[in-house]
Structure formats: C-alpha cells, structure tokens
Amino acid sequence: MVENQPIGVFDSGYGGLTVLREIVQKLPQYDYVYLGDNARTPYGTRSFETVYHYTLECVRHLFDRGCRLVILACNTASAKALRNIQQLDLPTLAPGLDGPGLDGPNRRVLGVIRPTTEVIGNYTKTGQVGILATRGTVSSESYVVEIEKFFPELRVFQEACPMWVPLVENGEYDRPGADYFVRQHLDRLLAQSPDIDTLLLACTHYPLLVNKIRQYVPAETTILSQGGIVADSLADYLLRHPEIERQCSQHGQRTFLTTDSTADFDRQATVFYGEAVRSDMLVL
C-alpha cells in the first residue's frame, strides 16, 4: 500500500487554484497535489484530441504519484477529455503500474461540469441561465447537454470570452483595461435574453473578474463561481464512497507542480490561490 495517496487536482494552468483553494478550505485534512500544465496552456483554443492527450498525460502522472482520485479543475479538460478518460482509459489501465492495488478500476477522475450542472437550476427564478466560458467549452456544448439532464425546463445561453483568461493572467482583471472586454461579452450574452438571472463563470479564471462583472449586470443577478460548488460536491462524494475516502491520505500536505517556470507559477499562484506557494517543475 502506498503511504502517501493525495487527492490530485489538475488544471491547464493557474485557474484550478481557485478551485483548490475552496476544496482546501472545505476539506483541509487531506493531502493534495496540484498540477498546472502551464507550458501548454491555454487549452481552450486546442482541439479535442490535443486536450484529451495532454489531460491524460497529466492524469497518468498524478496516478504515478499515488493519487487514487483526480479532480479535473479545468472546464476545457472536463468538457473535452473527461468522458474518454473515464470510459476508455480507466478500465484499461494496467494493474500494478504504481504498486499493489492501484489498478484502473480503483481510481477515479472527476470533473467540474457535472457538480455545477446538478445544482444550477436551484439558483434561477426565471429559468434562464447564462454560461460564460472559453471557446472550447462553449463549442463542446457540455453545459447545454448536462443541464438538460438535470433541469430540462431551463433555457441555457452561452457566450465565449476568449480575452478574459489573458486579462487575468496579465494582471488586468481589476484594472480599467478589463472593462471593455468584460462589458462586451456580458452585453452579448444578455442580448440573447433579458431574463437571464443566473450567470455561471464556467472557467476557473473568471472569479477574479467577478467585481468587474457585477458592474455590468443587473443587481439581482446571481453569479456562480465553481470552487465552492466543487468543494461541496467532493465532500459529498467522499462521504458516499468510503472505499475511496479511506485511501486518501490525511496529513494536510500541499504539493504544487508546474510544467513551466516555477518562478512564474509561484508569483501567479499568490493571486489565484490566495497565499504564497512553492512549486516544483515537472518535465513531461
């Protein structure tokens, strides 16, 4: 048995740190390994095949580090890679690669889309919700399909916001330069229906823009970030799956990995994670 079996959290870059922050606040006792594929970000503009290949490679690495459970804290990876990994790869992973008992069927990979779509209908009064996301997530139609399963009566409107991630990563999220692009995409979304009363920030970078977003939507609009929702869903999942929960080590340890510059990662992580981190570089 591998002694250290952390929960893995994967993202294409920094955004997943906003999810990890909420998970750690909710479940501080567990060990976590965060992997940001910063060398190959952004994922949002890449093909389904490329995102799947990159995501699977990173998931395999987290498995190699002893993770039994991996969270894809990235909407694009959840939209373009999760289903294939769950259905095609987990059942065929050769047992014993990482030690006794670490075979594919005993591993789990979860995403951020399903937890959100399971509850989004509870927040709207008009039955009309707006999805703000990357082009890759919007084009996948993942949110439209998943919301239909849980709340078929809802009307779902989407808007791709390709400039929002660069704004955040270049430190412009709270500066006047962000206003034009924030307002542009919100106006386009609300032009689809004035009755949208719930907005989902379906990219883990977007919570850093929430103060700007609030300036350009009606005051009564509900704005949902995914971190808290995913944290609650993970807590519930571990409660319902004690066989997985028992295998997650509990030493309160945090490990941060990046496929690019550790100095850049550590600097940006302070913004996304809310506290200083020290990362190690991973060469894939």
Results as ranks from 00 to 15, higher is better:
Tyr180His: 13
Gln184Gly: 00
Val70Thr: 12
Val283Asn: 15
Ala219Gly: 04
Pro194Trp: 03
Pro100Gln: 11
Asp232His: 08
Thr259Pro: 05
Val277Thr: 15
Gly177Leu: 08
Val2Asn: 15
Phe63Leu: 00
Cys161Val: 09
Gly101Tyr: 04
Asp236Glu: 14
Ser193Ile: 12
Lys26Arg: 15
Ala73His: 11
Gly228Leu: 05
Gln29Leu: 07
Ala77Phe: 02
Asp266Met: 05
Ala133Ser: 15
Val24Leu: 13
Leu186Ile: 14
Gly96Leu: 04
Ser233Glu: 13
Ala263Cys: 02
Pro207Thr: 07
Asp174Val: 06
Ile71Asp: 00
Asn38Phe: 03
Arg175Phe: 06
Gln184Ile: 02
Tyr216Cys: 09
His185Gly: 05
Tyr32Cys: 01
Arg83Ile: 03
Leu284Met: 13
Asp64Asn: 11
Thr221Pro: 07
Asp174His: 02
Phe48Lys: 11
Val119Phe: 00
Tyr14Ile: 14
Leu234Gly: 09
Leu35Gln: 04
Pro152Asp: 10
Val168Asn: 08
Thr137Gln: 09
Arg267Leu: 06
Gln215His: 11
Thr50Ala: 04
Pro91Leu: 13
Glu49Thr: 12
Asn75Met: 09
Val283Gly: 01
Ser225Phe: 02
Tyr32Thr: 05
Tyr206Gly: 10
Arg246Cys: 00
Pro152Ser: 08
Gly274Ser: 11
Thr126Gly: 10
Gln250Ile: 05
Tyr32Met: 04
Ala191Lys: 13
Arg83His: 13
Cys74Val: 06
Leu239His: 13
Val144Gln: 15
Asp37Tyr: 03
Gln5Trp: 00
Gln25Glu: 05
Arg175Met: 12
Thr55Cys: 01
Gly274Lys: 11
Gln184Leu: 11
Tyr32Pro: 01
Ala276Cys: 02
Glu220Gln: 15
Val230Asn: 12
Ser261Gly: 09
Pro95Val: 04
Gln5Thr: 14
Arg183His: 06
Arg65Cys: 05
Met281Phe: 08
Val70Asn: 09
Glu169Lys: 00
Trp164Arg: 05
Thr18Pro: 09
Leu208Arg: 03
Val144Lys: 14
Val156Leu: 04
Tyr206Asn: 10
Met163Pro: 03
Leu62Arg: 08
Leu234Lys: 02
Ala160Glu: 13
Ile85Leu: 01
Val129Asp: 02
Thr262Asn: 10
Lys149Ala: 07
Ile223Met: 12
Pro152Cys: 03
Asp280Pro: 02
Leu199His: 06
Ala202Gln: 07
Leu238Asp: 14
Glu57Thr: 09
Gly13Pro: 05
Ser142Cys: 06
Gly36Gln: 02
Lys212Ile: 00
Glu153Gln: 14
Gln128His: 12
Leu27Glu: 07
Thr41Arg: 01
Ala39Leu: 04
Leu200Tyr: 14
Ser233Tyr: 11
Pro6Asn: 14
Arg68Val: 07
Asp11Cys: 07
Phe265Lys: 08
Gly66Asp: 00
Val109Trp: 01
Arg83Asp: 06
Ala202Phe: 12
Glu22Asp: 15
Tyr34Asp: 07
Pro100Ile: 12
Asn38Ala: 08
Val2Trp: 08
His61Lys: 04
Gly66Ser: 05
Glu172His: 13
Ala133Arg: 06
